[in-house]
Amino acid sequence: MIRFLLRRIGQFIITFLAASFLLFAVTEFSPGTVASKILGPYAVSSQVDLLTEKLHLGDPLLVRYLRWLGIVAGVVENPLGDPTIGLGLSDPRGNRYVGNFGYSLMLKEPVVDVVGERIGYTVLLTLLAILVIIPVSLAAGVAAGVNPGRPVDRILSMGAVILTSLPEFVVAVALLLVGVVWLGILPGTSPMTQGGRWPLSLQLVLPVGVLVIASASYVLRIVRASVADTMRKPYVRTALLKGLKRRDIILHHVLRNAMIPPITVILLQINWLLTGVVVVESIFAYPGVGSLLLQAALFGDIYLVQALTLLALIVAVGTQLIGDLCYLALDPKIKLG
């Protein structure tokens, strides 16, 4: 187990370095120079040239990447916070600390603070969605998988296919029409502000509902296919012929083996919910990292985009590690090596 974890940590470091270098190169070579992005569209060429010289932005790409990596690791001071540059940026933690991703050019605040204000809302939205997605999709998927071809299977499978084919914005519009326009029992936006007409619990209903519909229907289909395939295995038929109760066979033999493929899908949904809910958060004005990433990309906030993209990478690698450990727990025959 220790060797496995050390190997995974090594793979994560290599993946992080490779992905961060590609990300740094893409953002550096996007339209416009780094200095012009920092100063804004109204900066004159003399200001751009002066900032380029002070920040050493004319150095080779690899040198700039290593300098940026040193800033993130807390080894090198972030020059953007130097008062002599005149950008008016300051960080209460100083210019050198671990996790220093620079400053948000859009909000003129440290990236760590900007992301810290938003990540909690996205985590809350993700947890609520997962708490509904997992039991609903597993229960419905198992019910369909153990009754292949029967009415319950046809109804659940057809409903899942229809809901999976609907884009998120279509589901959002439909829920807005029902909950806001027709019934008038839910707010049209979810800014998560307290003290207004709508309590926070009601502001979460529509965003969570859209995520559950978009994700649970897909997970349901995967669970149904895995359970139906496991029900056809020889050891299941042997257990039936021996006279074991169908309920006991499903609980003790089918579910344990059928849950291995759905775990991958569920963990991918967690990754998507944490870092890819741009559409849902934008429609409902939800203050999460998804809408923040969209705003940063439209504004050209390179430091904020870098931080959010690396956050998505960390979540993806973390969910993969959790998935490997879940596989081992479900099937001891799977080796960690």
Rank of each mutant, 00 (worst) to 15 (best):
H253S: 09
E28R: 14
V171Y: 07
L241M: 15
F21H: 02
A174V: 14
A296R: 01
L23K: 01
N147L: 11
Y286A: 03
A258N: 09
G323T: 06
R3T: 10
V142G: 04
R150W: 11
L241P: 04
L62I: 15
F12I: 13
I134T: 08
V34R: 13
L23M: 14
V317G: 08
S137A: 14
I250A: 11
L325K: 04
V111C: 03
G10Q: 09
R8Q: 15
I85V: 14
Y42K: 13
Y97A: 00
L124E: 10
N95H: 07
G290F: 03
Y103H: 09
G195F: 09
A18H: 02
L39H: 09
L80I: 12
A258L: 10
T189E: 12
V112P: 00
I71F: 00
G159P: 07
R3S: 12
S217W: 05
P151H: 13
G32D: 10
G288C: 07
V305S: 01
L267D: 02
Y65T: 03
A160V: 07
V98T: 10
L186F: 06
T189R: 12
G149E: 12
R3L: 11
I185F: 11
V265E: 14
G58T: 08
V34G: 02
V171W: 07
I130A: 11
G74A: 06
S90Y: 07
Y42F: 14
L125H: 00
A139W: 11
V48K: 11
Y121D: 02
V115T: 03
L274I: 07
A73F: 08
V277W: 00
R67I: 00
G74S: 03
N257A: 11
L163E: 04
K108S: 12
I13W: 10
E281P: 03
T193V: 14
V76I: 14
R93Q: 11
L206G: 03
G10R: 09
G209H: 04
I38Y: 05
I283F: 08
N78D: 15
L293C: 01
K37N: 13
A43T: 04
Y286Q: 03
S282D: 08
V146I: 15
F299V: 06
I133P: 05
V208T: 12
Q194H: 00
N257H: 13
I134E: 07
P79V: 12
L89Q: 12
G70Y: 07
V173M: 13
S201L: 14
G145Q: 04
Y327D: 12
C326I: 15
N100M: 06
S30A: 15
V142S: 06
G209C: 07
Q320W: 01
C326G: 10
Y235I: 06
F101H: 03
G116I: 03
G40A: 05
V278M: 08
V26F: 10
L51M: 10
Y42M: 13
L211V: 07
L50N: 15
L328E: 15
I13G: 05
V170L: 14
P151A: 12
L292S: 02
